[in-house]
Write a protein that binds this DNA or RNA. Structure first.
Lengths: 180, 180
DNA sequence: CCCAAAGTAGACCGAATTGTCTACCTCGCA
DNA sequence: TGCGAGGTAGACAATTCGGTCTACTTTGGG
């Protein structure tokens, strides 16, 4: 595997499960089995490595969510599909997302609170991209009035974000009541 | 004011707005205008100071939420009251909660991911206490069937957590569509 | 009045942090 | 064949971290 990709995947896993500030460069290169110079050859700083990890996770997550909601044709189906695929994620049944430990972007935004920082902005952009995907899915539903696109997408986002928080903090992994 | 309380309030504000790992002991005592020895006289370690801050915030937050939902008598009223008071928080209109920057407990749990750590546990206990308050409020509603207590409280918690996340990450501060 | 508790200022310690640098190696390609 | 890109190992610098300690001052109650 490409060294650069290998470093990103190693750092991503460590960041995701232990938090970013809790993981040092030395730990990353040690786990990755790579020299420090190699890391700094591919990434100018820790911040750039973080951004690369966020980008990798963003791509992976959106691909998964896109696929998991691809067969939806009605509003109610989209809601159930969103809830169900997230339940699978919470139970760590989604191979490409690994062991569940909350949303990397929510977690990272908590550590980098300054809205002007590029890391915080990357987190925000991820959430906006998820919302855009939901809007696209909603517009494709037969029983969707375009006047309610905005409020419906916000509602679904609120549900999804709430589920993620509850799954991480108090360990709730199933939400049957949300499916009506 | 009591020195101990003053240190807690200073540290709480710094932790809340900048993240815990981003704030060092030296910054806390410098902003508080207090000697290092004074801080370590009241708190055995940074972790104990963090726990004291979480406890302070927990008390303050639950008092506010208890008061903000005290007059509800029906299910729909509770939902609207929860949404409205959180909107006020997001807009930093709640004096005792200060400038909004997400939920301290969600943020802190992101930095202290180990579920065995006392800090992570304090975050979890806060969320459970909020849920218990919602359950108490629900049981007091005239049109509430006890068989749906559990699912309804989980639903409201999911909404509230989702609102908080969206308010912090993408800056949404009003949720009129959730009120039906 | 006097003493103990609580306070201040700041030097200091060991460990950890990010990031740089030297010296050397390996390998593919012109 | 030789060269440059990418790799390894690890010393090193500069800074910051949490935490301890000394020496001194302030303050309130018996």
């Amino acid at each position: 595997m490409d060294k650069r990709t290998h470093i990103i995947l190693t750092a991503l896993s460590l960041f995701y499960h232990k938090g970013i500030h809790s993981v040092g460069i030395n730990e990353i290169i040690s786990v990755a089995g790579v020299a420090k110079k190699t890391m700094y050859h591919h990434f100018a700083s820790k911040d750039e490595l973080i951004l690369a990890c966020l980008s990798e996770r963003h791509t992976r997550f959106l691909n998964w969510l896109t696929h998991a909601t691809s067969k939806v044709t009605r509003l109610e189906e989209l809601k159930v599909a969103l809830i169900s695929c997230h339940e699978a994620w919470f139970n760590s049944e989604v191979t490409e997302l690994g062991d569940f430990n909350g949303c990397l972007f929510i977690n990272t935004a908590a550590e980098f609170a300054d809205p002007a920082s590029s890391i915080n902005q990357a987190c925000k952009e991820h959430k906006l991209a998820v919302q855009q995907l939901i809007i696209r899915r909603l517009s494709a539903c037969e029983n969707m009035e375009s006047s309610q696109l905005d409020s419906q997408s916000h509602y679904l986002m609120t549900l999804v974000e709430g589920m993620i928080c509850q799954a991480k903090l108090v360990g709730i992994k199933q939400f049957p009541h949300l499916k009506q």
